[in-house]
Simulated assay, not measured.
Amino acid sequence: MALGITLLFVAILCGIATIREVKRRNFFAVGFAGISFLIFGWFSIMTIFVSGAPDI
Rank of each mutant, 00 (worst) to 15 (best):
M1Y: 13
M1G: 13
L3P: 00
L3A: 14
G4C: 09
G4K: 08
I5H: 10
T6Y: 01
T6G: 04
L7C: 04
L7R: 02
L8Q: 11
L8F: 08
L8N: 10
F9Q: 08
V10P: 03
V10G: 01
I12N: 01
I12V: 13
I12W: 06
L13V: 01
C14H: 03
C14F: 05
C14I: 00
G15D: 01
I16E: 02
I16P: 02
I16A: 02
I16M: 02
A17S: 10
A17D: 07
A17N: 07
I19E: 05
I19C: 09
I19H: 07
I19G: 02
R20G: 10
R20V: 14
R20Q: 09
E21K: 00
E21D: 15
E21F: 15
V22D: 03
V22E: 11
V22R: 15
V22F: 12
V22T: 08
K23Y: 12
K23E: 07
K23L: 11
K23A: 14
K23P: 01
R24Y: 13
R24L: 14
R24G: 10
R25V: 11
R25G: 08
R25E: 15
R25M: 09
R25A: 07
N26A: 15
F27L: 10
F27I: 02
F27A: 06
F28N: 09
F28R: 10
F28Y: 03
A29S: 12
A29V: 00
A29R: 04
A29K: 00
V30R: 11
V30G: 05
G31I: 08
G31H: 06
G31M: 05
G31Y: 03
A33E: 00
A33P: 05
G34M: 02
G34S: 06
I35Y: 02
S36E: 04
F37P: 01
F37M: 07
F37D: 00
L38A: 10
L38Y: 05
L38W: 05
L38M: 11
L38V: 13
L38D: 03
L38T: 08
L38S: 07
I39S: 01
I39T: 03
I39G: 00
F40E: 03
F40H: 05
F40Y: 08
G41P: 00
G41W: 04
G41L: 06
W42F: 12
F43D: 01
F43I: 14
F43K: 10
S44H: 06
S44K: 05
S44L: 05
I45V: 15
I45M: 11
I45C: 09
M46D: 01
M46A: 10
T47Q: 05
I48L: 13
I48E: 07
F49E: 03
V50H: 09
V50N: 12
S51M: 12
G52V: 11
G52Y: 12
G52C: 08
A53Q: 12
A53T: 05
A53L: 09
A53R: 10
P54I: 13
D55C: 08
D55Y: 12
I56S: 00
